[in-house]
Design a protein around this nucleic acid. Structure first.
Lengths: 212, 212
DNA sequence: TAGGGCCGGAGCGTTTCGCTCCGCAACCCA
DNA sequence: TGGGTTGCGGAGCGAAACGCTCCGGCCCTA
């Protein structure tokens, strides 16, 4: 460890490192992410991981709980923006940073508390979309689910994940800059447009059973 | 097997099924995709897989070769379009269908022939981008690499992959429709815009060592 | 300096892996 | 129709990777 550090502070730092490492490894390795790789990426022994969490599942459970908090906060903060477009941009760019937790579907159990938080998040997000629609800054033929799918699509970054797998830390910053440009392109596609979207708006059922 | 079928025709059908299954499983499971799951999804025994390919690596190698051919064909066909914008749309929508083979990086060896084909594909794609720029249908601040990254980003579909993992075949068609809308949104973001992209255009080095 | 608590990681049993090999069924030719 | 051949599916092998336990040793405290 670098320098002197009180015990409690180190434990706290380790816990944060574990959660971040878990997210990164999960993005790269998907559902097959191993506890050994998570601990290694966090710069922590396996033993420390198992002192904090009783099992791999429990760690993932905690990860989902935190993500739900973040999604709610992001949606409500975006809704609080004066400019609806800025609020939407804030939501998309922030949500993309959280990353997709889809690989965890089926591994975690959804508590009532989590379902409630999820509903709250959805509600704020729907209000944000409505606000943008009313202000005329969001194309009329796009629905909240379209935007959610777009965010999820932007959440995973194949290039960044591959560079992480290869350990090319030197290129990561450039890749992240490039990703911001791609996100900006996609966001521009959400502005009012004369070119209508194909097909019918997607139904809610696509998202309703995501964590089943 | 269903009905009577000559031996050679069945073998050919099996090979095609194997390649398609390999692509699907690879998209869902990433680099950890197992031969057993590939064979099962193709509706074929493991033995048949190993009669056609000497190893898992050889199958993946073949997959990359085919993808290179497809990329080249798509780029040259897009370039041949009279309307540059239609050509670009054709390229993006088709390339997205091929899917990302990024997980295979490091598992396959790049032959000179493959490198040459890749160069040919890149050249046609660059010409396609130039043509669109000159016609003024593609936003000026976007580079060929931006578009490549966008295509790669759109290539993976977390929702579809998750539904496949869960075996929810009933929702797959709706998910694919929804995905087409997301792609259309992103494509609209490529049209000329008054809102400049952030940062500097990405460098070629991001893609140069992809298969290292 | 003596003690206690937290650390990293070796190693357990289990699962999953890539791959081989063989019994059986389908087809061809006499 | 019957014997030979060809290609099929999948049981099972050794090896590798997995989740998790447990303990020797280091660091902090007093």
């Amino acid at each position: 460890m670098i320098g002197v550090m009180p015990r409690q502070a180190e434990a706290e730092r380790n816990d944060r490192a574990l959660l971040e490492a878990a997210r990164e490894v999960l993005a790269v390795d998907g559902a097959h992410a191993s506890v050994a790789s998570i601990a290694a990426r966090a710069g922590v022994g396996i033993g420390s991981l198992y002192r904090r969490y009783r099992s791999k599942t429990e760690l993932f459970q905690h990860l989902v709980e935190i993500a739900l908090d973040q999604w709610t906060e992001i949606a409500e903060r975006g809704l609080a923006h004066d400019d609806p477009w800025d609020g939407l941009v804030h939501y998309v760019t922030s949500a993309v940073g959280i990353g997709s937790l889809a690989p965890l579907a089926g591994m975690v159990t959804i508590t009532d508390e989590m379902a409630e938080k999820n509903a709250r998040s959805d509600k704020a997000f729907a209000a944000l979309i409505d606000k943008a629609h009313e202000a005329g800054v969001l194309r009329a033929d796009v629905t909240a689910i379209d935007v959610l799918l777009l965010v999820e699509q932007l959440g995973k970054s194949p290039l960044i994940e591959q560079l992480q797998r290869q350990g090319r830390e030197d290129l990561l910053e450039a890749a992240r800059d490039a990703r911001r440009r791609v996100i900006a392109i996609a966001l521009d596609g959400l502005r009012p447009s004369d070119h209508p979207l194909p097909g019918d708006p997607p139904g809610m059922d696509l998202f309703s059973e995501r964590w089943a």
